[in-house]
Amino acid sequence: MKDNKNLAHHFNSYKDQIRAEKIGMWLFLATEILMFGGLFVGYTIYHAEYTKVFKVGAEFLNWKKGAINTVVLLFSSWTMVMSIYYAQKDQIKKCQMMLGTTLVCGFLFMFIKYLEYSHKFHEGIFPGIYFSYTGSAFVEDLPLYFSFYYLMTGLHASHVFIGMALIFWMLIKTYKKQINSSHYMPLEYVGLFWHLVDLIWIFLFPLLYLVE
């Protein structure tokens, strides 16, 4: 393994290198959990104090769109896993197909998100001080719910966007023949990030869309 061209000079072996890379990746994912965790804790506490407001707020959301997006992300997680599976078997064509599907799923997710956001903007539901909705369903403190909604889904959507850029980068790498069965780790780390984005959505969906 010493002559592996993907081995950085400061590592003894490729195995050591992978271990160090993976620990770094998981430490990064831990900071992501802490960042989203703060928002989740804030949401849960305010939900307990303003239960009625949050229930009214959730009724503005279309749970069907949220459910479709959940399915889209779960499916894209599977195609991401399969792209690594095929890379490990040196079936690069299939690997590219799976990566491409993952990217399409990312676009689909963002498109549905765009539909949801534009529908709300149309009604004057903006975050923070720009909130201008005055319709019949208005209750006091309603902007509170939507500040959480926009912050949490917005931060998540920005992660989806970054994940899509990374997947696109991986797709280029496969065309440059830089991904194969003896070196597929970059794919694995992008996969970990993409799954984390999926993981966060798994919790966001029931929290935001299916509030009682």
Partner: peptide, 29 residues
């Protein structure tokens, strides 16, 4: 979430140190 972590993110098969790092972050939340 556990299914995604264990199977898609390979925590079930990997060294326990990665699960530990992740678990600690969840604990502190």
């Amino acid at each position: 979430g556990a299914l995604v972590l264990m199977y898609f993110m390979h925590l079930k098969y990997d060294e326990k140190i990665y699960s530990l790092i992740f678990g600690i972050s969840v604990f502190f939340v």
